[in-house]
Amino acid sequence: MDEEYDVIVLGTGLTECILSGIMSVNGKKVLHMDRNPYYGGESSSITPLEELYKRFQLLEGPPESMGRGRDWNVDLIPKFLMANGQLVKMLLYTEVTRYLDFKVVEGSFVYKGGKIYKVPSTETEALASNLMGMFEKRRFRKFLVFVANFDENDPKTFEGVDPQTTSMRDVYRKFDLGQDVIDFTGHALALYRTDDYLDQPCLETVNRIKLYSESLARYGKSPYLYPLYGLGELPQGFARLSAIYGGTYMLNKPVDDIIMENGKVVGVKSEGEVARCKQLICDPSYIPDRVRKAGQVIRIICILSHPIKNTNDANSCQIIIPQNQVNRKSDIYVCMISYAHNVAAQGKYIAIASTTVETTDPEKEVEPALELLEPIDQKFVAISDLYEPIDDGCESQVFCSCSYDATTHFETTCNDIKDIYKRMAGTAFDFENMKRKQNDVFGEAEQ
């Protein structure tokens, strides 16, 4: 370990593993360490099931009705991949897709007046949907046509809207959309967690709705994908990429100290040895004095023996409960997957309800979601602090990732990755940087 590296990475969460992969592909010498004996950090999948019970201090362990412990891979952080989103792009560019198998999530649902409705995925579904009345549908269709044709580089498509100054509230007004449709559009399509976006320039919202539609167009059922064997497969896929390009991995490796000289990182000390480096990437748990708390998320993992009611017996789905429907500031989400994804025993389902904490009784906040899941065989409640770095790391060369937020997709995580890359490399992130180099010394032969 007593060696000189360009970059040392602490923690094998998804953000850290993707950055480690990119740095290795770009010719950097990388050492990647984790104090845990497993990959994934906060974003790991726990197996066998006995391990999950232990982690949540349920000492009696799983009953026999849960089947074989080894058949379970339970995500600690519930997220899906947008089919046309940035993480899929990263997987394709790096060819990490060859280590993973994905399934399309069967449906996306939205909560309205105590019931759940399928988010329409085709024009026919939209016309048949009970989510809105006849005239509302016509106006909504006009709005969707506007979004589909919108091109930020072609003012002819703006229809009198200025993407940089017109607020989204004004765009909704222009198409005369009612409150329910606005809730549905902002939260189930643009996937905002709160209503803060309404008074911001509309460009980002329009682009988010386009991303949803384009992702949906790829597979038809929903815009989301999920990897077989759980999300823990993602960091491992990128760790393989890093290793192929010469990255060194050490799990179960305690970090005793991060060594600084004149305010700059110069190395990491572990078990009496020092590895030197020019730059350091880590998750917040490794540098508690360089991060601040930015809120909390509650996630309740529920094991069920039945599909969720009114989802047409889907073996995977997402449910969004827009905040307006339950008098909150932030949406509540449910991600459900099952034995069909090799993450649970035969006939079992895993539904994870999550939201940003707003009160001193977080469990009560998630109740509307839990009511949709009854009866629940077993619950595991996790309340996590969200951390963000206190500075950009440019001076110390210590670059810290943000905690995983309450969103049900990876777009915010990818933004964090691109942002850290830019601060480390001094140049904007470009997907081309992730391409495997042809015929290089570490390149794998085609399968």
Rank of each mutant, 00 (worst) to 15 (best):
131 L>T: 08
42 E>Q: 06
394 C>F: 12
394 C>V: 03
30 V>E: 00
312 N>T: 13
275 A>H: 14
215 S>A: 01
168 M>E: 14
407 T>V: 15
241 L>V: 11
309 K>Q: 05
190 A>L: 12
432 E>Q: 03
243 A>N: 05
443 G>A: 12
210 K>W: 04
408 T>A: 09
21 G>Y: 12
359 T>D: 14
144 L>H: 12
410 F>W: 00
168 M>L: 00
124 T>N: 02
315 N>M: 14
276 R>S: 00
274 V>L: 10
186 G>V: 00
52 L>P: 03
366 V>G: 04
244 I>T: 08
249 Y>N: 10
256 D>N: 07
110 V>R: 08
18 I>G: 02
28 K>D: 14
371 E>R: 12
375 P>L: 03
64 E>G: 12
12 T>V: 06
202 C>L: 13
135 F>P: 08
112 K>N: 06
245 Y>D: 00
414 C>W: 03
431 F>M: 15
267 G>S: 05
96 V>M: 09
141 R>G: 05
333 Y>S: 13
194 T>M: 15
328 R>M: 04
423 R>H: 08
329 K>V: 10
233 E>W: 14
112 K>Y: 05
337 I>F: 09
146 F>A: 10
56 F>C: 03
390 I>T: 07
206 V>M: 15
253 K>Y: 15
76 L>H: 11
216 L>R: 01
310 N>V: 01
373 L>W: 02
20 S>L: 01
260 M>R: 12
354 S>R: 02
44 S>R: 11
23 M>R: 02
262 N>E: 14
117 Y>I: 04
167 S>G: 09
376 I>G: 01
363 E>A: 04
427 T>D: 13
206 V>F: 11
142 K>P: 00
98 R>F: 13
305 S>R: 01
157 T>I: 06
25 V>R: 07
207 N>C: 15
241 L>I: 05
167 S>D: 09
299 R>S: 00
321 I>A: 01
324 N>D: 10
165 T>I: 11
424 M>N: 15
379 K>E: 07
163 P>F: 11
155 P>F: 00
199 D>N: 09
397 Q>H: 07
130 N>R: 09
167 S>H: 14
3 E>C: 08
384 S>G: 12
336 M>L: 06
360 T>N: 14
240 R>V: 02
32 H>N: 00
148 A>V: 05
179 Q>T: 14
32 H>P: 03
47 T>E: 10
28 K>V: 13
61 G>R: 12
182 I>S: 10
191 L>H: 08
384 S>L: 04
14 L>K: 01
431 F>A: 02
107 G>S: 10
364 K>R: 10
117 Y>D: 09
218 R>S: 14
335 C>L: 15
377 D>H: 12
56 F>L: 11
394 C>G: 13
191 L>T: 11
372 L>E: 05
